[in-house]
């Protein structure tokens, strides 16, 4: 047991370093990921340690980056690519949707493309336009991809290691605003794997369901609610695809009330999918319709307005208050 105080950024860096040290077929490439170490320093020191054949800068073209990764994965490598920002991943969309996600199915399992597409994502850092999108629904809507969103440093390390080892392609969404949050981590301690949600705070009155950047906000809301005498359970989805119906539904059944919290636009989204799934499975356990606290159905606002768009503690607690409590 070696507990260390690490930021999520450092945990991700450690995961890449350990995976590259363990398996020579693991490569890291993208824009500015070489000597600079990435604009968020997630790849810091990897080129120096493993050489420029293992961690390298590419020309500035995202479709090229992902398409190159497809070919390298076809030919025995395990590429990890970085899309510099969420909205800058869109030029790669055709490669992701038409090839990364479909090659295994197209070839009846003959061609597999194990790769990780790392995407620094979501807002909360005062970023200007094109730097704050929550793009998870696009990927989650595409069969053939796994979609993960860690919310703490331990999961960032554990899930990234598992993503790199996975035989299936993974879109790995890294909440930018959590990159610098420090916590005690034991990197050797196993975390729940791909496909597993986790109850991160026990509670009995209602369940908050969140993932990625919204988990710390949900935990904060639960803390405030506790001071008001209301016991909120918090579930961290962790793995958007595959989705852990069992853990989420067991949690909701235990409280009978739920609020889904997500930063992304709410319409036709992961949050609406969660509401639909839980309602289909837990209808008779529900004391109230499931509420959602999501981003509004608008393009992500400029920095000075972004606090209106981000789910906050007050908005979450207002939604909780609306869950048809018998005493109110």
């Amino acid at each position: 047991m070696t507990h260390e105080k690490l930021t999520m950024a450092q945990a991700l860096n450690r995961a890449l370093r350990d995976a590259m040290a363990e398996d020579p077929s693991v490569l890291m490439f993208g824009e500015d990921v070489g000597p600079l170490g990435g604009v968020f320093r997630i790849t810091d020191g990897l080129t120096a340690e493993f050489g420029e054949e293992r961690c390298f800068d590419t020309p500035l073209a995202e479709s090229g980056i992902v398409g190159l990764a497809v070919g390298m994965a076809m030919n025995g490598m395990r590429p990890v690519v970085e899309m510099q920002f969420d909205a800058f991943a869109y030029p790669a969309f055709e490669q992701v949707v038409s090839h990364v996600a479909k090659l295994r199915n197209r070839t009846r399992g003959a061609v597999t493309v194990p790769m990780v597409i790392r995407v620094p994502y979501a807002g909360g850092i005062g970023g200007v336009e094109h730097h704050c999108d929550s793009s998870e629904s696009y990927y989650a809507h595409t069969p053939g991809l796994h979609v993960l969103a860690p919310a703490n440093a331990a999961d960032a390390y554990g899930l990234l290691r598992e993503a790199i080892a996975s035989p299936d392609p993974v879109v790995f969404l890294e909440p930018k605003k959590l990159y610098w949050s420090k916590e005690e981590v034991d990197l050797a301690a196993p975390v729940p794997g791909i496909g597993k949600a986790a109850v991160v705070r026990e509670g009995t009155d209602a369940t908050l369901i969140a993932y990625g950047p919204s988990v710390p906000t949900a935990l904060e809301a639960a803390e405030v609610a506790a001071q008001d005498g209301r016991s909120l359970q918090v579930v961290d989805v962790r793995s958007i695809v595959p989705f852990d119906d069992a853990t989420v539904c067991e949690a909701v059944r235990s409280t009978g009330r739920a609020v889904v919290v997500a930063e992304a636009v709410g319409f036709a989204s992961v949050s609406s999918e969660i509401v639909a799934r839980v309602t289909e499975r837990c209808f008779h356990s529900l004391a109230a319709p499931i509420r959602r606290v999501t981003g509004f159905d608008i393009p992500f606002p400029p920095p000075k307005l972004e606090h209106f768009q981000l789910p906050g503690v007050d908005r979450i607690l207002d939604a909780v208050d609306d869950l048809q409590w018998e005493d109110s």
């Binding site: 398409g67 190159l68 497809v70 070919g71 390298m72 076809m74 030919n75 025995g76 070839t107 061609v111």
Partner: peptide
């Protein structure tokens, strides 16, 4: 067909996307 048996990639229907895969296969080699 099994692309590895004859080293023939699956026929590409989208245009030009396979050219990048070809570069990736060549670069890995």
């Amino acid at each position: 067909y099994d692309p590895y048996r004859t080293k023939v990639a699956p026929q590409a229907t989208p245009l030009a996307t396979q050219l990048l895969h070809a570069v990736g296969v060549g670069y890995a080699a």
